[in-house]
Amino acid sequence: MRAWRTLLIALAASLAAAPAVGANHLPIHAFYGHFVGIGVANSRDAEILNLKKRDLDVTIAKAGDGFSVAWVTIVRRGGLEQVDRKTAKMTFVPTASARVYKSTAHTYPISDLGYGWATLEDKTLTVYLLVVDPQSGTYQLHSYGRTLDGPDKMHLKFTRISQGRPKVIVEGDMARQK
């Protein structure tokens, strides 16, 4: 009887300690690297202006206790002529939540830099940026979901919500550069 009780207690303790089913999150270092590829914007404006194609370039690297994400997006008219180039870099540090990181520089939404945070779920690292226009008070919420599809392929899904309405969605695939 005592042996059964000991076994049940041990089983309960092991169940409590075990991670939840499906909680198989990749470690952040799995995302470290340089990825390059092509994206396509799915918006009415992009279609009308023939600006659907984008060159995507992202570098994710260790930075102190956290990590940094630096990316370049080049918009090409008709997939050829470069009409816009945007670069951004954000550095994140861990928070009390194991899978949530906060930006070191983007710390207040009602500012030019906005408020940034990142989450790690399954195979996806998502970077969020909330920017509230200091003059009008209107907001934009950007999310960059980067999903690893195997060790060397990464899928990007970018969404921009403006005042409650999704405005731009860009999806693309990138390959790890060696």
């Binding site: 949530v100 989450t119 509230v132 008070g137 209107t138």
Partner: peptide, 21 residues
Amino acid sequence: WARLKENTLTVHVLVISPEGK
């Protein structure tokens, strides 16, 4: 944060869950 425009006062609240949502 809150914004005032014409006759409308809009209050926004952002909460990020422990999972980052």
